[in-house]
Write a protein that binds this DNA or RNA. Structure first.
Lengths: 304, 304
DNA sequence: CCACGGATGAAACTTACTTTCAGCACGCCC
DNA sequence: GGGCGTGCTGAAAGTAAGTTTCATCCGTGG
């Protein structure tokens, strides 16, 4: 990845807020204060003058400008306009579903369900919006050409990684997933130019995953990172960066929404690869489906 | 024209353009030139600076300001922002995403992404809608009381099962996931009344999963099924049935959307259980987060 | 032909935005 | 633990954008 070069935000009109959320941890404290104000109420921010916003964020105008540049905008007026546009497009979240918010202590199951589903669906949609088809295309191309594909991920991202591995395998691509770092490093050492290594890490700071990906890159493999934070360490060792757009709730444990967002990206890549050779993929799928048929029970009707 | 008495335009956010069109004949020639530019391409006008717009309309900045006042805006920046907002709202909703449909053969990546995300998001939302909070409540209750929880799933559902296991474990509940049927059956044989067994199967016809769940029930455990088909075999051996609502596309291979729907349900149960004992869950989460801290790289700042 | 009033743009002025720069705090390396 | 570099920050200077003022122009009606 090309170092600092402000991460482009103008794929299209959509997703500036999401984009900013992703960049949040990579911003300086003062800029983060500005960012938080903007995220909290984009429409309001658009109405404010730069001086006003600076005051509200307890910082100087200079920092606000720096913030604008950090998120890929040319200046404050540009940011204002984009914010106004976003805010207008944004449909008010139905009633009291706190976007990205925590679940209130007294919540009953119905509320919990509504909140989770809302956030999950949002993560999926926003991820898709900001996903760069050009980058996906390149990744799909690389996977299609690859002699071998390796997928890495730890913890929750490990499930996603292994899911992808299984999918690729199912359409006849040689793919591996190693849950264990040592095995992974060993296998990685055998990668070469033309192979593809994919590292999945929500935070982008998982040491093991980054290390493995780095190793892969040294061996000449094409490296891909899938993370929520476009400026996290993992992006430094990746040729292609794909980002999710999940604003996690306080139950950071699960990184719940992010997992779904990651899976959505995975699905897109999978379908993209499969589409490159529809006939072959379809056939492979039929064969594999046939393989498990014996393990299926008779129908799902009345009483089985 | 009734003099200056600027017609108020801020009834609401909508209709500025229409409003201006209506006022057109009552504007002075120079102002009309400005108005026409604005009406022709609001988004473009929003991007221009006042000097720019004035030049384009072959007039002076002063006239542009007069125009702003004439249409009821306070000044040029205000107009700009309103225009940006209007223009954004005017954008066509993302065309023809075939609901539940297959991906057309000639589709490019952008289309694929849009289709998948749309279906994924829909699956999540619709699953949440039809999920019965009462049933969830009972399942949560059972898990909370259980001495031990076992989760089963094969293939893609296996990832979901193991994800749930890991989550429960993380908040201090004793939970197991056995990828292998034999091990699963062995473990299941040791379940007893009060324990909980959860079987996950998209089709509801996965023989292994059904068998294990049946075994669990015989042992007196409370059984839960998570499936997309409320009348499939797995529901016959379950005390509580939770359903997802994914209309799969032709790429049945992945059961892509269903996976996300399953995860959403899992998340709901997880949060439900965690909410039963917030303090304990939070503490457990903090401890486990702390445990992996050493495996995190320093933040995602500028250049790492 | 003059008086009048509205329309208009040049220029003065104000405010908003942007850049520069020096101070400061923090982490790093001896 | 002291010096050194690096990056964050806001004050202030500088520039551009927006707004007001005002003289001029032009057409109209007396």
């Amino acid at each position: 990845m090309v170092k600092t070069a402000k991460v482009s935000a103008n794929r299209d009109a959509g997703g500036l807020i999401v984009h900013i959320s992703g960049l949040l941890p990579s911003l300086s404290p003062a800029e983060q204060r500005v960012a938080r104000l903007v995220i909290a109420d984009p429409a309001d921010a658009a109405r404010r003058t730069i001086t006003d916003l600076a005051t509200a964020a307890e910082t100087s105008e200079a920092t606000v400008i720096r913030f604008c540049r950090s998120v890929g905008m040319q200046g404050y007026p540009q940011l204002r306009i984009r914010l106004a546009a976003e805010a207008a497009r944004r449909v008010e979240p139905p009633d009291a579903r706190v976007v990205g918010g925590d679940i209130p202590p007294g919540a009953d199951l119905a509320q919990i369900i509504a909140t989770i589903a809302f956030n999950d669906a949002r993560a999926v949609e926003e991820t898709a919006e900001q996903l760069d088809p050009a980058v996906c295309e390149r990744v799909v191309e690389a996977i299609t050409q690859a002699g071998r594909v390796e997928v890495y991920g730890a913890g929750a991202s490990g499930f996603v990684a292994s899911d992808f591995q299984q999918k690729l395998h199912r359409i006849g691509r040689t793919a591996f997933y190693w849950p264990d770092v040592h095995t992974a490093l060993t296998s990685t050492a055998l990668l070469s130019r033309g192979d593809v290594a994919i590292g999945i890490s929500h935070t982008g700071t998982t040491a093991d995953t980054v290390e493995v990906l780095e190793q892969a890159r040294l061996r000449g493999a094409t490296t891909v990172a899938l993370t929520n934070f476009p400026r996290s360490p993992i992006t430094e060792v990746a040729d292609h960066v794909l980002t999710t757009a999940a604003r996690e709730t306080t139950y950071r444990s699960g990184a719940m929404a992010s997992r779904l967002a990651q899976l959505t990206v995975i699905d897109c890549l999978f379908v993209g690869v499969a589409a490159r050779n529809r006939a072959r993929a379809r056939k492979a799928i039929e064969i594999t489906a046939e393989a498990v048929r014996g393990h299926r029970l008779p129908g799902g009707r009345r009483r089985g």
